[in-house]
Amino acid sequence: MTDSVLSIKNLTKRFGRQTAVDGVSFHIEPGERAALIGHNGAGKTTLIKSILGFLTPEEGSISVLGNEPGSNAARRSVAYLPEAVAFQKALTGVEILTFFSRLKGEDPKAVPGLLEKVGLSEAGRRRVGTYSKGMRQRLGLAQALIGEPSLVLLDEPTSGLDPVSRQDFYALVEEVAARGAAVLLSSHALSEVEAKTDRVLIMAHGKLVADDTLASLRRAARLPIRLRVQGAEVAADEIAQRLGGRRVNCRSVELFCDADEKLSHLAAISALGSLVEDVEVTLPSLDDVYRHFTGVDAKKES
């Protein structure tokens, strides 16, 4: 436990009567990529600001490599990319990275290499005012990579990025984690992080409602798989009768099953032979899984 890069115990932060973070505990190990998922106002940013030491929690404790959050030792080992950051438009990418290198006590000679890593070598000498949103976000990531930090906190780093930029972004995150840094990135949608993280932490109303790998969360949610069988001719009634599904139209039948029943159902379908023309298998979407852990649980509580 002591080698955790980030260790949070029973953290509670209130603003007046509103509890923004409510009894959250988790650890992140070196080289781990963890996604912090929650809708707007779930407490993600409050949690991240507490890790940075900007907010003082009412209860619980945070330790960054064994140091107090916000202490000099912690600040030296943490890198951070805020959700909305607008660098001075009049400055160039090189000037901004040089400035942050000097603030962090790192050699500005590494700046061209950092710019190349995020694909901004060409644009480095141009003013930030001329950058696209994706380029500004990559500049922000380059800033977070200065000096090989042990913990990288990224607050909604991919919101507003196109799919290609997002993939490039996660490729960089993977590289950082491979070097041994722990990465905690927040997002409002599970579908945005997909398979790009090792672990998923889901927050709802300030509470941590799930903490596991995506595959385990899928299993735990026990959401049904949908099978849609298309008959060869006008045979929906017969197929529905033999499989026990629901008739959608005159050719198609829909049925739902658990993950462990999938194969037996598929066997039954193939046993129908020429009656079936096509089968469509739909796994529960990531949004369904997310809704299961946040929405349904919240309803149970109230």
Binding site: L52, R75, Q88, G105
Partner: peptide, 9 residues
């Protein structure tokens, strides 16, 4: 940018 500056040492 205050967030970035004050999270650095």
């Amino acid at each position: 940018t205050a967030l970035l500056i004050f999270s650095s040492p």
